[in-house]
Amino acid sequence: MLKKAIRTHEFIIFLILVALSLVVGIINPAFFSVSTLFDTLRASIVYFIMSFGVLPLMIAGGVDISFVAIAAMTSYTTHMFLLKLGYEGGTLLYFFIAGAMGLLAGLLMGFLVTRFNLPVFNVSLALYTMWYGFNLFFIGATANFDLPQGTVGYYARFLVTAKDPYVGQTGLHVSIIYAVVVGVFVWWLLKYTIIGRGLFAIGGNKEVAIRSGFNVNFIWMVAFALMGVLSAIAGVTQGFLSRYFNPVLFITQPLDVLAGIILGGASITGGRGTVIGTALGVLLIQIINRALILTGIPVQWQKLVVGIILVVFTSIPAIRAQRARRLRRTTEAA
């Protein structure tokens, strides 16, 4: 029954997405264009990757905010390091070095959490400050625009291109492939591996997971490692897409990213969440942002509208839950 409910949740988000798109499209027909589709996806890519990295942790019941700091630290450090070496090659080495750093950062966090039995959120708070501080003090405090020769054209490398009636030539960036690959991998991990099922088990009932023989600490470590690596990939991708590397990349955004995942149906207390739902949650936030621009709401009032939408979106399930609770209390007796 609940499985159906979760399905419904994703379905509802999907419906909201469609409804929102229709409304915006009616107000401004420019919304229905290949260019809007491609741009929305392009803007979503890094959030897809980061969210897919945080989702497994959240399913196991760990709320992390340090992932944005890891993205910033790994991408910026890698860039400044390669810049110093005079590297002029392609993007691959970036992903490789940053990914390795992300792996280490994730493992460090996993070690702190499992070895000293600490709450994930508290540790992530400390590491969030630490990594940004590390970036700003040890590496550099200003954004850097000098890209290696081999990566300069990357921002405009498209998977497919199309003619758009409004903006002319438009394309879907190749890095969408990373997001898809990562999404499929995380989906597979969650659904088809013992590690993935262990994440759900830990989030559902940690004590029973230990008693049942899940290697809880190992599973935690995998989740942290995955979070570290994917954050790094997202950080580097963002650097190339925006054509500069920023030491305070995403610094104000950890809560927004978590909000997207939660909108997508994941539970902040663990045990629940899907890749599809997360992807829809990310898209919903991006579409809202785009819709606000296209519907002609003045820029300065857009954040307020997002705020109102958020208040409504968070209140509806709460009201529904309250009703359900009262109903259950009385039907338990029957």
Binding site: L2, K3, I194, G196, N205, S212
Partner: peptide, 27 residues
């Protein structure tokens, strides 16, 4: 000692899965 968020089938089978030592789940 059950997992409230998992299905009936998975709750029943989980110990056997873990005991088998396999890393991939065949639904």
């Amino acid at each position: 000692s059950l997992f409230p968020n998992l299905t009936v089938a998975e709750n029943i089978a989980i110990n056997e899965l873990l005991a088998s030592g396999k890393q991939v789940v065949d639904w």
